[in-house]
Simulated assay, not measured.
Amino acid sequence: MATKWGDRDARRRDILTAGAALLADKGYAALQMRDVAKGAGISPGTIYTYFPTKEALFAELYAQRLILLHNAIEPECVSAEDPVALFVLVATEYLDVYRTYGRELNIWSLLDHTGATASSAHTEALTSAAHKVLAALHASLDRMYSARPEIERVDITSALTLLWATITGLSDQFTGVRQHLHTHDWDAAAQFAATTLTQGLGLRP
C-alpha cells in the first residue's frame, strides 16, 4: 500500500526500510541518499527533510539494529547462568551487526568530531540504543557476581569495556580480510575468548 501524502511517520518508515535494504544488500557505499529516496518512493529533496545527512540516516538505522540486538540478548542476560554461553551468544549476535554497521564506517568517530551531527536526535537515538545493550550486559554481570559472593567482584564498567572491545575485535577479524590469516572458525574463536575472559573475571574456576 502506497504511503499517503502528509503521513510523515509512514514516510519516515519507508526511508528507513529502503536504507536498511541498501545496507544489507550492498553495504555502506550503497547508502546514497538519491537511491534511498528512490527506494522510498520520494523525491531526493524530500529525504533531507527527514535526515539532513547520510550519516544521520546511518546512525538512525544503526540505532534500530542495536534495539534488535538488545531484544535478542536481553532474555538470556536476565536468566543465563553460564557466562561463557552468554558471551558466545552476545558475540555471535553482534557479528551480524558489525558486518553491516561497524566494518565500513566507525560512526562513533564522526560523533566525536562533528558537532552538528553529534547533537542531532538521530545520534542521540544511537547512543541511547547502545546504552540499552550495555545496561542489559551490566545487569547480567552484576547478577552473576551477586550469585557468587565468594568471588572477588571486579569493576563491572571496566569488565564491560574489555568484553565489548574483545567482541568488536573478533567481529572485525572475521568480517574483513584478516580472516584469511588464520585457520580458526568463528565458533572456536568465540568459545576460546569467552572461556579466557570469564576465567580472568573470576566467573569460572
Score class of each variant (00 low, 15 high):
Val78Ser: 09
Thr123Phe: 14
Arg12Ala: 02
Ser119Pro: 00
Ser120Pro: 07
Ala10Pro: 01
Thr168Pro: 00
Leu201Lys: 09
Leu160Phe: 06
Arg178Ile: 02
Val36Ile: 12
Leu110Asn: 04
Ala129Glu: 03
Pro205Ser: 13
His138Asn: 09
Gly200Asn: 11
Ala30Thr: 01
Pro44Asp: 05
Thr168Cys: 08
Val177Met: 07
Tyr48His: 10
Tyr101Lys: 08
Ser119Ile: 09
Val84Ser: 11
Asp155Ser: 13
Arg99Ser: 08
Leu170Ala: 11
Thr49Gln: 11
Arg103Asn: 10
Ser158Lys: 11
Val36Glu: 03
Ala135Asp: 13
Asp112His: 14
Leu134Asp: 11
Thr127Asp: 02
Leu57Tyr: 01
Leu163His: 00
Gln32Gly: 06
Asn106Val: 05
Leu66Asp: 02
Glu150Gln: 14
Gly102Trp: 03
Arg103Trp: 07
Gly176Trp: 04
Leu95Tyr: 03
Asp9Glu: 15
Ser79Tyr: 09
Ala30Trp: 01
Thr46Lys: 09
Gln173Thr: 10
Gln64Glu: 15
Ala21Trp: 03
Asp14Arg: 07
Ala135Thr: 10
Ser109Tyr: 08
Thr195Ser: 14
Leu170Thr: 03
Pro205Lys: 10
Ala10Trp: 03
Ile156Ala: 04
Ala56Gln: 01
Lys132Phe: 04
Leu160Ser: 06
Ala56Ile: 00
Phe174Gly: 04
Leu16Ala: 02
Ser140Tyr: 02
Tyr98Pro: 03
Arg103Val: 13
Leu111Lys: 06
Ala116Arg: 14
Asp25Lys: 14
Leu126Pro: 03
Asp155Tyr: 07
Leu95Thr: 02
Lys4Tyr: 05
Asp142Tyr: 01
Gly176Ser: 15
Thr161Asp: 10
Thr100Val: 15
Leu68Trp: 05
Val78Pro: 00
Ala30His: 02
His113Asp: 12
Ile167Ser: 00
Lys54Asp: 00
Ala40Glu: 03
Asp112Met: 15
Cys77Leu: 10
His131Thr: 04
Tyr98Cys: 01
Val88Pro: 02
Gly19Asn: 07
Glu81Ala: 11
Arg34Trp: 03
Arg148Asp: 09
Ala194Lys: 01
Ala125Ser: 14
Phe174Ser: 05
Ala194His: 01
Phe58Tyr: 12
Phe192Pro: 02
Glu150Ile: 06
Arg12His: 07
Ala193Ser: 15
Leu134Lys: 13
Leu69Trp: 05
Arg148Ser: 13
Gly102Arg: 03
Ala30Asn: 04
Ala72Glu: 14
Val154His: 11
Gly200Phe: 08
Gly202Trp: 06
Ile15Thr: 01
Pro52Ile: 02
Ala63Gln: 07
Ala85Thr: 12
Gly41Asn: 08
Gln199Arg: 15
Trp5Tyr: 13
Gly200Ser: 11
Ser79Gly: 01
Thr53His: 00
Leu31Arg: 05
Trp186Ser: 07
Leu31Thr: 05
Thr117Leu: 15
Thr100Gln: 08
Ser79Met: 10
Leu201Arg: 09
Gly169Leu: 00
Glu74Arg: 14
Leu22Gly: 04
Leu170Tyr: 06
Ala63His: 07
Asp185Cys: 04
Ala10Met: 05
Glu93Lys: 10
Cys77Glu: 08
Ile42Pro: 06
Thr161Cys: 12
Ser43Leu: 06
Ala80Asp: 07
Ala188Trp: 09
Lys54Trp: 02
Gly19Glu: 04
